[in-house]
C-alpha cells in the first residue's frame, strides 16, 4: 500500500523539523499512541491502539528515524504487530521552505497482514489519511502553543 501526502505550516522548516522528530510531541500527536519510549538514538518502542474498519486492537512495535538532515528530510521505519495483524512500513519525509512557512511532503509504502489485511485493506488508505491529517493538525496546534514564548 502506498502512502502519500503533504501538509503546510506557518512556521519555518527548522521549527517544524524539530517538532516532528521530538518523541514527546510525536507521542502526544500520533492518534492512538499509548506509549513511546526510547530504545536508543532515534529508535523508539511504540504502543498504538487503532481501529480500522471493524478491526480494533493494540499494536506494539518499533519506530526508527534515519538519515536525519535538519531541516530538509528524514526517513522513518515502522514495524509493529498485534492481534489484528502486522504493519511494516517506511517512507521519507521532506520539508521545504515556502512563502508562508513550510511544506511537508511524505511518501512511503506499508505492508499489512492478518485480519486488517483481509477485512480492512479497502479502508486502510482512507484510515491512514485521517490519521496523518490528525497528526499534522496536532503538530500545528503544538506550534501555535509555542508561538507566544518562541515568537
Amino acid at each position: 500500500m502506498d502512502l502519500n501526502g503533504s501538509y503546510s505550516f506557518n512556521a519555518p522548516p527548522e521549527r517544524v523539523f524539530d517538532l516532528m522528530v521530538d518523541p514527546k510531541i510525536v507521542a502526544a500527536c500520533l492518534p492512538g499512541c499509548e506509549q513511546l519510549e526510547a530504545l536508543g538514538e532515534n529508535r523508539y518502542r511504540a504502543v498504538l491502539s487503532m481501529g480500522i474498519a471493524a478491526i480494533t486492537g493494540r499494536y506494539e512495535g518499533v519506530v526508527e528515524l534515519q538519515d536525519l538532515e535538519r531541516p530538509v528530510s528524514y526517513k522513518m521505519l515502522v514495524e509493529g504487530k498485534g492481534k489484528p495483524g502486522f504493519v511494516k512500513g517506511g517512507g521519507e519525509v521532506r520539508l521545504s521552505a515556502t512563502e508562508s512557512g513550510t511544506k511537508v511532503e511524505f511518501s512511503g509504502k506499508a505492508q499489512v497482514g492478518g485480519a486488517i489485511a483481509r477485512v480492512g485493506q479497502r479502508l486502510m488508505g482512507a484510515a491512514s489519511k485521517v490519521m496523518t491529517d490528525k497528526f499534522f493538525a496536532c503538530l500545528e496546534s503544538k506550534l501555535a502553543e509555542q508561538e507566544p514564548s518562541g515568537g
Partner: peptide
Amino acid sequence: YDEDGQLLTGAMLD
C-alpha cells in the same frame, strides 16, 4: 492477492 501475498478478497464483503 496484493503483491505481498495478502488475500484482499478475504471475506464476502470483498
